[in-house]
Simulated assay, not measured.
Amino acid sequence: MEQSVVSVDVVTLRFWPEDAGVTIGIAPRGHEPFTGELALPGVLLGRGERLAAAARRAVHTKLGVPDAAIGAVGQLVTFDEPHRDPRGPTLSIAMWAVVAPHEGPAQWVSFDATPTLAFDHNRIVEDSRAVLARLLWKDAVFTRAMLGAEFPATRAVELSTSLLGLRPDPANLNRTLAALPGLERTTERRRTKPTGRPAAVWAFTSDEPSWAE
Rank of each mutant, 00 (worst) to 15 (best):
P33S: 10
P33F: 08
F34M: 13
T35K: 13
T35N: 11
E37C: 11
A39R: 00
L40A: 05
P41T: 01
P41F: 01
V43M: 00
L45R: 02
G46Y: 05
G46H: 01
R47C: 07
G48L: 14
E49L: 00
L51C: 01
A52Y: 02
A54I: 02
A55K: 00
A55G: 02
A58R: 00
V59P: 00
V59G: 03
H60T: 01
H60Y: 01
T61D: 09
T61M: 05
L63P: 04
G64C: 02
A68S: 12
A68R: 10
A68V: 11
A69S: 11
A72P: 01
A72V: 15
A72Q: 05
V73I: 15
V73D: 03
L76T: 03
L76W: 05
L76Q: 07
D80H: 03
D80Y: 01
H83D: 15
H83Q: 13
D85P: 03
P86M: 08
P86C: 11
R87H: 14
P89F: 05
P89L: 06
T90N: 14
T90P: 02
L91F: 11
L91Y: 13
S92Y: 14
A94I: 15
M95D: 09
M95I: 09
W96K: 08
A97N: 00
A97K: 00
A97R: 00
V98K: 02
A100D: 15
A100H: 15
A100G: 09
P101K: 08
H102N: 11
H102L: 09
E103W: 04
G104L: 08
A106F: 01
W108G: 04
V109Q: 07
S110I: 06
D112S: 06
A113L: 11
P115C: 13
T116P: 03
T116D: 15
L117K: 08
F119D: 14
F119H: 14
H121Q: 15
R123L: 12
R123Y: 12
I124C: 05
V125C: 08
E126R: 13
S128N: 07
A130W: 02
A130K: 09
V131N: 03
L132S: 14
L132P: 08
L132R: 02
L132F: 03
A133W: 07
L135R: 12
W137V: 11
D139S: 01
D139R: 04
V141L: 12
T143Y: 10
T143W: 05
R144T: 07
A145P: 07
M146Y: 04
L147I: 13
A149H: 12
A153G: 04
A153P: 05
T154G: 08
R155Y: 04
A156P: 07
A156K: 02
A156N: 10
V157N: 04
V157M: 05
L159S: 02
L159V: 05
T161C: 07
T161K: 03
S162I: 08
L166G: 06
L166A: 11
L166Q: 14
R167H: 12
P168R: 06
D169T: 04
P170G: 04
N172V: 13
L173D: 11
L173S: 11
